[in-house]
Design a protein around this nucleic acid. Sequence first.
DNA 1: ATATTTAATCGTATTATTACGATTAGAGTC
DNA 2: GACTCTAATCGTAATAATACGATTAAATAT
Lengths: 112, 112
Amino acid sequence: MKETISTHSSINLQDPDVIRTAEIAKALGHPARVAILKILTGQNTCFCGDITEILPLAQSTISQHLKALKKAGLISGEVDGVRTCYCLKPDGIQDLNDFLSKLSSDLMSTCC
Amino acid sequence: MKETISTHSSINLQDPDVIRTAEIAKALGHPARVAILKILTGQNTCFCGDITEILPLAQSTISQHLKALKKAGLISGEVDGVRTCYCLKPDGIQDLNDFLSKLSSDLMSTCC
DNA sequence: ATATTTAATCGTATTATTACGATTAGAGTC
DNA sequence: GACTCTAATCGTAATAATACGATTAAATAT
C-alpha cells in the first residue's frame, strides 16, 4: 500500500518541452553532428562539400547528418545555385541551452 | 583542383571534446530520460520505483534508461539497502552546458 | 545541347536502441 | 529458513540509426 503524493503530475512523456529537449539532444547525439556544428560555428563556409572535405565520411552520410540537424531546427539550409548553404540557427541552440541552464540552476535542490 | 586552406585541422571525430558532447547529448536524446532528469531535479525521491510510478514504462525499461544516464555520467546511483538512490551529477550537466554556452556565444560570427 | 558540379535521395547491410515480460540477486522481514 | 520487496539483468522482438555506393536532379559552364 503506497500513499504517493506525486508532485509530478506535470511531468509526462507527451509534454512538448520534454519532447523538444529530447529531439534537440538527439540531433546533437552523434560525433559527426557535433563536429558539423563546430565547423559551422567557426566559419562562414557552410557548403556540404566543405564539410565533406573536413570529415572522413561519405558525401551521402554528411548529407544525412545535415538533414537530421535541419529537421531538429539546429541549422538552416538554403539553396544557393548549385550548392546549399548551411548555417546555425540560434533559436534551436537556445532551446536546449535554456533547458540546461534551468537544470543546472536547480541542481542546488537537495537530493541524496 | 581545389586549394582548400582548412582551418579545421583541429576538428575531428576522435576529438575527446566532440565525443564527450555527443555522448552526453545522446543520453539526453530520449523523452523518458529527459523526464527522469526533470523528476530527479525536482525531488529528493530518487528511487527507481518512484520513477516507475510516474512514467508509463515498465520497471525494466526505466532501469535501462537509468543505466544509460549513469553511463553518460549525468546521474549517480548508490545502493541504499534494498533500493538504489539516483541523483543528478552536476559535473555531467555542466559539461554539456559549457559546450552549448560556447556555441551560443560564437553564434555572432557571420555565416550566410 | 552536352558536360560538369553539387548535393539530395535511393537501396541496402550492419549495428544500436527501445520496450517488454521473465528471471535473478540481494536486502530486509517474519 | 521462507517470504517480500526492490532493482538489475536476460532474452527477444520490433524499430531506428548509421554508413556506403549508386543514382538522380538541378544549376551552371562549355
